[in-house]
Lab assay of single mutants.
Amino acid sequence: SRYQRVDEALPPNWEARIDSHGRIFYVDHVNRTTTWQRPTAPPAP
């Protein structure tokens, strides 16, 4: 859903941030990219 819980676990090396307008975006520290779409953790084997 559009309103996912912010405290749900993100994949490793990802961080949720809030911009100056109060919107949540996500930072990938490995690839040094950002996205508005919440990343999903790969399925557990």
Rank of each mutant, 00 (worst) to 15 (best):
S1K: 15
S1V: 13
S1P: 05
S1Q: 12
S1W: 09
R2C: 02
Y3K: 11
Y3D: 15
Y3N: 15
Q4P: 08
Q4M: 12
R5Q: 15
R5D: 15
R5T: 15
V6Q: 15
D7T: 03
D7L: 02
D7I: 01
E8L: 12
E8Y: 05
E8V: 15
L10K: 04
L10D: 04
L10F: 03
P11D: 03
P11V: 02
P12V: 06
P12T: 09
P12R: 05
P12G: 07
N13R: 06
N13V: 00
W14P: 02
W14A: 05
W14R: 02
W14T: 02
W14S: 05
W14D: 09
W14L: 02
E15L: 02
E15A: 04
E15D: 06
E15W: 00
A16D: 01
A16I: 00
A16C: 03
R17G: 05
R17E: 04
I18R: 13
I18Q: 14
I18G: 04
I18L: 14
D19E: 01
D19V: 00
S20K: 14
S20V: 09
S20Q: 13
S20L: 07
S20C: 11
H21M: 12
H21D: 12
H21A: 11
G22Q: 06
R23A: 13
R23E: 15
R23T: 10
I24K: 09
I24Q: 07
I24E: 08
I24A: 06
F25K: 02
F25R: 02
Y26K: 02
Y26A: 01
Y26H: 02
V27M: 10
H29K: 13
H29C: 08
H29G: 07
H29Q: 14
V30S: 11
V30Q: 03
R32L: 07
R32T: 08
T33H: 12
T33A: 11
T34A: 04
T34C: 08
T35I: 01
T35V: 04
Q37M: 13
R38E: 06
P39T: 00
P39D: 01
P39R: 01
P39M: 01
P39L: 00
P39N: 01
T40P: 13
T40N: 09
T40C: 08
T40I: 08
T40H: 09
P42R: 06
P42M: 13
P42H: 07
P43F: 07
P43M: 09
A44M: 12
A44E: 13
A44Y: 05
P45V: 15
